[in-house]
Simulated assay, not measured.
Amino acid sequence: MSRAKISIYVDEVVWQEFKAYVMGKHGKLHGVLGEEVTKALEDCLSRVAAPKSAEAQLYRILRAIIELNKVVDDILEVRE
């Protein structure tokens, strides 16, 4: 997956709440903030825009599988 560097202005309160959410979820911002912004944008798009192709649907399924694998890895790591 390629990444794009962006610079945007957002509501300060919303941004602080989002960063607090990411910090609570990951315990850090560095290295995960961009991933969480991407997930939030994907979630928003999935709710308001129907997938335009089978390729888009497959991409979303693969992203979900990757996220599920991360959760499983985290669970296994805790068990050790």
Rank of each mutant, 00 (worst) to 15 (best):
E42G: 01
F18C: 04
L62W: 02
L58K: 00
E55R: 00
A40S: 02
E77L: 03
L45A: 13
V48I: 12
K19C: 12
K19Y: 05
D43V: 07
A54N: 10
R79S: 04
Y21C: 06
V32I: 08
Q57R: 13
I6V: 15
K39L: 12
R79V: 15
I66C: 09
E17T: 04
I66K: 12
K19I: 04
A64L: 10
Q57I: 11
V71K: 13
V14F: 07
D43N: 05
A54F: 08
H30L: 05
V22F: 03
S46T: 03
R47S: 07
L62N: 06
R60W: 00
V22N: 01
W15H: 08
A56R: 01
M1R: 12
S7A: 13
A4R: 12
G34T: 11
Q16F: 08
H26P: 05
V14I: 12
V13H: 07
A4D: 14
E35D: 11
Q57T: 06
L41F: 03
M23T: 02
A50I: 03
Q16P: 06
K39M: 10
A40T: 07
R3L: 15
S53H: 00
V72S: 11
L62K: 08
I75G: 06
E36G: 04
Y21G: 02
L33C: 03
E36K: 13
S46L: 02
I65L: 15
E67A: 15
T38S: 14
K25S: 07
A20E: 15
R79N: 11
K28M: 06
C44L: 13
F18Q: 05
H26N: 14
F18M: 11
D74M: 10
K70A: 14
E12M: 09
S7T: 14
K39I: 04
S2T: 04
R3T: 12
Y21E: 14
S46Y: 03
E12N: 12
Y9E: 14
V48D: 05
I65S: 02
V14C: 08
